[in-house]
């Protein structure tokens, strides 16, 4: 990433443990959960920094500690030079946060939700209206500006929430899964709007995602989280280099794998099997041989579909020992 840059966000040895839940009628007791387990990260100014991991990896807990919503049990959080563990109220004056919930805004119209949020971010009435008009136009929300959020589709509602986070200038944006449920057009509008702020104003973005495609395309650097720990942190390209030149071969059989073919049985020994789907990580040469095997003779007759792909962040995640379930690949 070239020259060392000032930190926008710095956490050191951050720990947050949720106490065990008591058993109630119908719900069993839950054990103690260490949602953030010694997280040390530095987000540089002006970069789009991602937190990637499946549900329950501790991503949201981590950003809630950055935004002053949750007090860590131990460790330090510094946002743009301010200690937000000691002064959590300063976070609201440094950053804009998009949480996963929109219940505070659901019954407002899109236009009023954005304007009110801008007012509460400290803008004067006129400035707030200007900011509202600008962001509604930027995200192409003018057509639904008069409709209440609760009457919108999931993706539209999410886009309206993004608009509230972008109304009123902040040097740091903390966005928790901003594009959930959005169509590609809306996603592009969001990333274009975020990027405009970065280019024009040097805005830093901390982004929570469990979408590996999004992580590869929009992030400058990404921290991979698993069970409250950072298991890797680098550029998407740097992380993919970790898994070397291996490629991924996915085979889907029609009914069952033709294990009577010796070559297929040999492949099966190394495959991760999920029902009719086999996933194999192979060197390019071995993959070529494997494809030749399964596209000929009795194996091909039993084959429903196959894909051959270069490593993705999901492969990185698996190679680092993460759990696979929960990552989105669309």
């Amino acid at each position: 990433m070239g020259t060392p840059t000032r930190a926008a966000v710095r956490t050191s040895a951050l720990v947050k443990t949720y106490p065990p839940g008591r058993a109630r009628r119908g719900t069993p007791a839950t054990p103690e959960v260490r949602a953030t387990d010694g997280v040390s990260l530095t987000v540089r100014r002006g970069e789009v920094f991602g937190l990637l991991g499946p549900n329950g990896a501790g991503k949201s807990t981590l950003v809630r500690q950055l935004t002053g919503l949750l007090r860590p049990d131990a460790g330090a959080v510094e946002v743009l030079g301010h200690d937000v563990v000691r002064h959590p109220e300063r976070a609201a004056r440094l950053l804009a946060y998009l949480g996963q919930e929109s219940t505070a805004l659901d019954e407002l119209t899109v236009s009023l939700a954005v304007e009110t949020t801008a007012r509460l971010r400290g803008l004067a009435p006129r400035e707030a209206r200007l900011a509202r008009d600008h962001v509604l136009e930027e995200l192409e929300l003018c057509g639904i500006a008069g409709r209440p959020l609760r009457h919108l589709s999931g993706g539209q509602r999410r886009l309206a929430c993004v608009a509230t986070a972008l109304a009123g200038e902040r040097p740091l944006l903390v966005l928790d899964e901003p594009t959930t449920g959005m169509d590609p057009v809306a996603r592009r509008a969001v990333w274009a709007a975020v990027d405009r702020r970065r280019v024009d104003r040097g805005t830093t973005v901390v982004l929570v995602t469990h979408n590996v495609i999004e992580a590869e395309t929009v992030l400058d650097r990404v921290a991979v989280l698993d069970r409250g720990r950072v298991i890797a942190c680098d550029t998407p390209g740097g992380l993919k280099a970790l898994v070397g030149g291996d490629v991924r071969l996915e085979l889907v059989w029609r009914e069952r794998a033709p294990v009577e073919v010796p070559e297929v049985a040999a492949l099966g020994a190394d495959a991760a099997v999920a029902g009719r789907r086999w996933t194999l990580r192979l060197t390019p040469e071995a993959a070529r041989d494997a494809v030749a095997t399964v596209t000929a003779g009795p194996a091909f007759a039993a084959l429903d579909d196959f894909t051959l792909a270069t490593p993705s962040l999901e492969d990185v995640y698996l190679a680092l020992g993460g759990r696979t379930e929960g990552l989105v690949k669309t």
């Binding site: 109220e89 929109s102 505070a104 509230t164």
Partner: peptide
């Protein structure tokens, strides 16, 4: 959270 992350 929406209100808590605004300087209001």
């Amino acid at each position: 959270d929406h209100y808590a992350t605004l300087p209001v």
